[in-house]
Design a protein around this nucleic acid. Sequence first.
DNA 1: TCTACCGGTATACAACAGTATACCGGTTAC
DNA 2: GTAACCGGTATACTGTTGTATACCGGTAGA
Lengths: 114, 114
Amino acid sequence: MPRTLPKHATAEDMKYVQDTLYVISGKWKMMIILAICAGNNRFKEIQRAIPDITPRMLSKELKELEQNKLVVRKVYDESPVLIEYGTTPYCKSFGAIIHEMIRWGKEHRKIIKR
Amino acid sequence: MPRTLPKHATAEDMKYVQDTLYVISGKWKMMIILAICAGNNRFKEIQRAIPDITPRMLSKELKELEQNKLVVRKVYDESPVLIEYGTTPYCKSFGAIIHEMIRWGKEHRKIIKR
DNA sequence: TCTACCGGTATACAACAGTATACCGGTTAC
DNA sequence: GTAACCGGTATACTGTTGTATACCGGTAGA
C-alpha cells in the first residue's frame, strides 16, 4: 500500500475518487450498511437500529445503495409479504476503505488535538 | 488489509469514518490537494489549474484544509509579499485512502455498467 | 371491530453547500 | 497614469441534502 500521495494522478483517477466518495456520501449510508451487517435486515429493524433516521431518509438511502449494488432487497412472497435487505459480496470489497478510514480518522483526531 | 466489512464496528469507529469523510468532503478538496502536489503552490496558480473553481471556494477550501493540517500556508515577507501553499507530510498519509478509492471506483464502474 | 405492526410515501420546510459577479488594496511593468 | 497581476473578500443567489410530520393500504391478533 503506497504511503505517498499520487504525484501523477490523472483527471481519470480523480473521477474514480469522486465516484467512490459519491457512493458513500450521505449522512446515513455507512450506518445503514453496518446496521445491516449487524443483523438488522428489515426496514423497521434498521430504522430502530439507527435512532434518529426518518423513514424517508432510510428509504432514499437504501434505494441508492441498491442502485450501487451494495445492498440487495429481497421480497419473500409469503403472506404478509416479507422484505429483507442484505449486503452484497461486492459491498464487502468496501472493507479496505472503511478500515483505512477508521485508522486515518483515529490518527487525525490525535493530530488535530495538539 | 482486511477484505471483509467490520462486523463489530463500534459507534466510536463510525465517528472516525465520519471524521475522515468530513475532512475530504467538499467538491474541490481532492483536486486542490492534487493541484498543489503537482507544483501549483500559489493561489492564482491553483485557481488556474482547476478550471471552474471560484476564488471564494478556493479560499474556503484552503482554509479548511489548513485547519485540518493537510495544507500549510507560508508567507514570505518579501515585497511584494509572496504566499505559498504546500501539502504537509501528514497529508501524504492520505495516500493509502486515495489509492484505495481509485481502485474501488475503477472496479465500481465495471460492476455498475453491467 | 379496534389496535398495532409492516414497508414504506407525500408534502413542506430548514440548513448547508456551492455559484455568480463584482470588487478590494497593494505592487509591478509599461 | 494606467493596466495587469497578486491574494483574496462581499453579497446575493441557487441547488442539494436532510428534517418534520403526517399519512397510506395491507395484515394479524385480541
